[in-house]
Structures are given as structure tokens and as C-alpha cells.
């Protein structure tokens, strides 16, 4: 009787494990995201594309006179590459972490660049309440739900 019970429990655990998934790892985003992959300051914006491929986002920072009402015209852009690393062991443990590579382009040339870590999260045993990035939350500075929900 005891042995049969043990077998049943083992089977239930196995089914639960398989049903909730096993192991996954992902890393999405440009694969060239180390310091040595970066294009030097002074290079053209085309060199950025050659080095990293198509960006995930282009942010238009400013276009107009350099100093507001006078000075030469400037066009400032950010080329942004976003990277996520994540993994899971079923639903027992999951994690994700974010990085971005960003180029500051002025009049078609690289004026600055950086690689920055953009946060991480981990959960155990279905602790998967969703905490969106502040940008995705109502009012940015809070969305009235400390348990992470977004309205």
C-alpha cells in the first residue's frame, strides 16, 4: 500500500513537472553587444548598422538649431538595441534580465555610445505576478497596485 502510494506521488510529481514545462533559456536581441563590438566615436551611422544590424528602435532626440534659436542645424538620434536574457525551470524558477546598447548619433556620426543594464527579475514557485516596467504603468510613478498589476 505504502509503495503504491509512493509510486502515485512520484507519478503525480512527474506529470506536474512535465505539465509545467522543464528548462528553457533565451537570449534575444543583437548578438554583438560587448564593449569590443561597439563602433568608435566619429564613425558613421552606417557603421553602426554594419556592426549590429537593424536597431530595435530609433529615438528622435532633437532636430533644429544647435542652441535653440541660433547655431547650425543638428539632427540627434538614438539607435537602440535591446537584449533580453531569460530562463525557466518549469514554473518553479524563472528569471529575466535586460540590457540595451545605445548610440548617440549627431548629424549622421556616432558622438557617444553605451551598454547599460536595464534591470532583472526572478520568481520561484509560480511567483509570477507581473511587474511591468514603469513605462508600461499608468502614471509612470505608480499604478495603484503594489502587487504588480497594471491597469
Amino acid at each position: 500500500m505504502t509503495r503504491r502510494l509512493d509510486l502515485l506521488i512520484a507519478l503525480a510529481v512527474l506529470v506536474a513537472t512535465l505539465g509545467s514545462g522543464c528548462v528553457s533559456t533565451q537570449r534575444y536581441g543583437t548578438a554583438r553587444a560587448t564593449e569590443k563590438d561597439l563602433v568608435d566615436e566619429g564613425a558613421t551611422d552606417g557603421a553602426v548598422i554594419s556592426a549590429h544590424g537593424v536597431p530595435d528602435q530609433i529615438i528622435r532626440v532633437y532636430e533644429g538649431p544647435a542652441y535653440g534659436t541660433e547655431g547650425p542645424q543638428v539632427e540627434k538620434l538614438l539607435f537602440v538595441y535591446r537584449i533580453v536574457d531569460a530562463g525557466s525551470f518549469g514554473t518553479f524558477y524563472t528569471y529575466d534580465e535586460f540590457t540595451n546598447v545605445c548610440y548617440f548619433i549627431v548629424n549622421g556620426k556616432v558622438e557617444g555610445r553605451g551598454i547599460a543594464r536595464g534591470g532583472s527579475g526572478a520568481s520561484i514557485l509560480y511567483g509570477d505576478r507581473f511587474f511591468p516596467h514603469p513605462r508600461g504603468r499608468g502614471g509612470h510613478g505608480g499604478d495603484d497596485d503594489p502587487t504588480g498589476g497594471s491597469r
Binding site: F98, S120, S123, I124, Y126, F131
Partner: peptide, 17 residues
């Protein structure tokens, strides 16, 4: 109950520096 209601999660999203 523990599994059904979720256990623990900790996150910190946004620039780290």
C-alpha cells in the same frame, strides 16, 4: 494553496546604474 497563489517574486526594472 502555495502553488495556486504563487510564491515569491522580486524584480527591479529600469536602468541599474
Amino acid at each position: 494553496l502555495l502553488l495556486g497563489s504563487g510564491c515569491i517574486s522580486t524584480v527591479r526594472y529600469g536602468v541599474e546604474n
